[in-house]
Design a protein around this nucleic acid. Structure first.
Lengths: 203, 203
DNA sequence: GAATCCATGTAATTGGTTACATGATTCA
DNA sequence: TGAATCATGTAACCAATTACATGGATTC
């Protein structure tokens, strides 16, 4: 626990390169050690994750000394492998947070469709926006539930920036705020479409 | 121009599979025929695009009959290849808009960092959010400019859902609304961090 | 003299998705 | 009887990024 040891840990952390998803996996395992399967189940509530991509990444990170694993035997269920994040993993994540933040990669079918949407029929335009509103409503009620759930389970911890429920709290609130705003935008667009009934070519 | 011809065009369109970026490229070329290089320059204002990915996609779409090309000789500059979207391309895009909308793929370094941000130092948390605010301010002023530019150049057309400036107008407004909302969220988070000074472990 | 713009492309590599394989248990 | 859940993994494929190659014109 001397300065020197902490310094070499930080130096080692600086040399380790892993991909975007790996950082998220480490983040999840720093909250609680679990199996690959369970990490994915937990993350999937918030974003889609491919389980087939996760297994090799976990093995890779174990080789690099970021994770340690332990095989757990279960009856009635297949065995599972519990991964635990090492102190090096914590250093790697901190180092990554301090470093430069890459721009987000967004591949969005919806906005791509709106981009070319001027050449569709009015019916198709309305349908696209209406569908989006439905989707947003679903998402909003889903995340509103997750938020009350979080506060029931963790209460005060969600207000403490040093505990993980804080991170979850602010991320859910961010989503809800953005979804609400997009919902307003959708309604404004629908109004514009109604004001301008001839706005779609009928062939 | 008989019913039958339109129907076979639509049938042909239903069988053609191209990837996400290809639809966006078609959308751009349906606004105006240009070269691969210029399409990318135009799209890049709104999202990052890899030119190396575009050239093969354009050739592929030409083979499929979605584009026709014409070599233009220039002096003092390399020759360029102007691509023009065919009626089939228009049918394909319309068909795609009518079809199911896939969920967006988002790989976002910033939210991934916030997810693990509870285990960083208070200083690092503030820095991350402050940087985000700076970035948002940049984006907001950039897109506000694009919006006034659009209205200066196309005026009334931006209000007509049957013309492409309408699509651009609503997409820029969507961005601006979402960026503003995220900016508010950032400030709320900063307030929470200030209220709770001890919220970061100092190692 | 070095960097950037114009303009096209190929090759190599990494990242991500889909399909496949295994096998017991539980639920409709 | 068939599907879904738990649980791990490999193989094949597609998508995306980075690097490389070319070469004149212009700008710093």
């Amino acid at each position: 626990m001397t300065e020197a040891i902490l310094e070499t840990l930080d130096d080692a952390a600086a040399d380790i390169r892993i991909n975007r998803l790996s950082y998220t996996l480490l983040g999840a395992l720093l909250r609680e050690p679990t199996s690959g399967y369970e990490v994915v189940k937990a993350l999937e509530k918030f974003r889609p994750v491919n389980i087939s991509q996760v297994y090799p990444l976990l093995s890779e990170m174990e080789e690099k000394g970021l994770l340690s694993s332990e095989e757990i035997e279960q009856d009635g269920k297949p065995n599972k492998k519990i991964y635990r994040a090492t102190p090096l993993a914590r250093a790697v994540v901190r180092h990554w947070i301090d470093g430069p933040t890459q721009e987000a990669v967004i591949r969005d079918d919806f906005t791509a469709k709106v981009y070319s949407f001027w050449l569709a029929e009015t019916r198709a335009k309305r349908a696209l926006i209406a569908e989006r509103i439905d989707w947003l409503d679903c998402e909003i009620s889903f995340f509103a539930e997750r938020l009350t759930e979080l506060h029931l389970e963790h209460g005060e911890a969600a207000l403490d920036p040093g505990q993980w429920p804080f991170s979850r709290d602010i991320l859910i609130r961010r989503r809800l705020a953005l979804y609400h705003e997009e919902r307003l935008w959708c309604h404004r667009v629908l109004e514009q479409l109604n004001r301008n009934e001839d706005g779609g070519k009928t062939t």
